[in-house]
Amino acid sequence: MIPFNFEYYKPSSIHEAVQLFQRLDTEEKQPIYYSGGTEIISLARINILYTKAIIDIKSIPECNVLHLEKDQLVLGACLPLTEIEESNFYPLLTKTIQEIADRTARNKITIGGNICGQIFYREAILPFLISNSQVVIAGIHGIKTMPIQQVFHQHLHLKKGEFLVQMITEKADLHLPFISIKKRQQWDTGYPLITVTAAKKPSSSFIENSSNQSLTNYERIQIAFSGLNPFPYRSEEIERDLNQQHLSLEQKVDLATSHLPEPILDDFEGSAQYRKFVMKNTLQHVLSTLEVQ
């Protein structure tokens, strides 16, 4: 039950939505965009979120796109997680979002809502962080498409009045060898201690030795985390550690664990020390699994 009233708008175009936002903002209605709405409803109930106007973007056609084009996958922000799971164009994404909340809730939770949520796990972003993905953002000045690395730092950096329209992922990245693990204490649903998604991507680099230069092909591990800190992220430093070809698996993991960004979350899901322990085990599992794939 929401203890306050708000105005409700359901625009049918991007243009209408951003215009509405601007007007409502001028009227000091603290408007917010509404997609699945599950988080908005639950936070409003306990007075953590307040607004005088919501703009439901579920009728905007671009936000409901789900198709695999010639070389990219386009996912509208308003797609419920289960719809994306069922289409299964991007298995790593399917595996990752399947662990969010529970299935009935995922019939309502949308991918855009999860990525833009206040609840800090935002695990749906992880597969995009480790692939060549772009973000389509709408604002009063029109629509822009940007590489995810440029706009996602801990959270999606949206300017006032902007909203997420689509996620676009390179087709070549959809079927890389991957692993996605969500670790919880002792239960099968709900928030993680840590969530790790990783993929192995073909890469090449020049190796120099005394006599000549050679182009070496190898597979680079790309990895992103949620639950370790109060935001999801991909760490270049940890990736460098894990991709040190000359190190043993244990050495890689030890090195990576020494580079975890502090402070580690210490909350009712688990202590910081325990999270580190789980992280170390999980990284070992990730590496050994990807090695055999």
């Binding site: 204490q185 002792q186 664990t257 688990g270 202590s271 020390q273 325990y274 580190k276 322990f277 170390k280």
Partner: peptide
């Protein structure tokens, strides 16, 4: 409750900073 963290804590005893 008998959660893995309790077992870990009991098993590994004091805080291990070497991690």
């Amino acid at each position: 409750p008998l959660i893995p963290e309790l077992i870990w804590k009991t098993k590994e005893g004091a805080v291990d900073d070497s991690l």
